[in-house]
């Protein structure tokens, strides 16, 4: 039951169907990469799982450790243990990262429980040190005026602090220079482990030079059309996506 199980998910955006009977099982402790050309529905998958209001799920199931999360509100899904690292994280002027994280942690406590602030800061600083993030970072407003790399690092810090059961990383590598990519990847490597499953959505193979996936899935036209080990990523890097398209066309 320790899996994120997506079963026959159909999703439409503005009345256009994007995901078609999408199925995938991500066991806890594993890293799965989802690759595919642009416009095949990779980001739609991420947003639909996280409950973005613009993405309508017409049928299917998503079970988080056996619990159907599709009936849950966005914030309830997050508290159930789903984390989404955004491709384009929002900027929130005036709300410091520390206060933002405090609110997120407070939300995970019982109604009468009060977050222990000193412990919280201690933990946050430890995690920042481990992720090589400057402690001054926490007094800055969430993503406000951040560079692309800083935004992604902030996503990693949040992931570290919220300790999700399953993390979906939506093209976290896009727009990052090689240094930022390395730092973000190192962060993911530090955080991954038996307690967390990671779904790494990416267009390019290069992040997989830093993060080794247990499985690679190729997505095309709203569903997974091919799955394999990490070597599949290299094959895609080498040959591009066209041969996959041809394979799919032959099957049709």
């Amino acid at each position: 039951m320790s899996t994120l199980e997506i079963k026959n998910l159909n999703v439409t955006v503005a009345e256009t169907q994007i995901l078609r009977d999408f199925s995938l099982t991500l066991p806890k402790g594993e890293v799965h990469a989802i690759m595919g050309p642009n416009g095949t529905g990779k980001s739609t998958l991420a947003k639909a799982l996280a409950g973005h209001p613009d993405y309508e799920i017409t049928s299917g199931e998503v079970l988080l450790d056996g619990e159907d999360i599709l009936e849950l509100e966005v914030d309830e899904r997050a508290r159930a243990g789903l984390f989404m690292a955004f491709q384009y994280p929002s900027e929130i002027p005036g709300v410091s990262i520390a206060n933002f994280l405090r609110a997120a942690r407070q939300a995970r406590l019982g109604e009468d429980e009060e977050l222990e602030v000193t412990k919280f800061y201690k933990e946050m600083y430890e995690k920042m040190d481990a992720l090589q993030i400057d402690r001054k970072f926490t007094s800055r407003a969430v993503n406000d005026g951040f560079s692309g790399g800083e935004k992604k690092r902030n996503e990693i810090l949040q992931m570290a602090m919220l300790e999700p059961k399953y993390a979906i990383m939506d093209e976290t590598d896009s727009g990052l220079d090689i240094d930022a990519l390395r730092i973000v990847s190192e962060g993911v490597n530090k955080l991954k482990g038996p307690q967390m499953g990671v779904l790494l959505i990416t267009h390019y193979q290069r992040i997989l030079n830093y993060i080794t996936p247990d499985k690679v899935h190729v997505m095309f036209d709203g569903r997974i059309v091919k799955s394999g080990g990490k070597e599949l990523a290299l094959e895609l890097e080498d040959k591009g996506y066209d041969w996959i398209k041809e394979e799919v066309a032959q099957l049709a």
Binding site: D75, N99, A103
Partner: peptide
């Protein structure tokens, strides 16, 4: 701002709390 709200919700912050945080943020300037 809907996207800001969504971002807070996506971190597990309940809607009512998210409104407060965004209000504090609005005043911080």
């Amino acid at each position: 701002d809907e996207e800001q709200l969504y971002y807070l919700l996506a971190r597990g912050i309940p809607r009512k709390e998210a409104y407060k945080l965004l209000t504090y943020g609005f005043f911080e300037e």
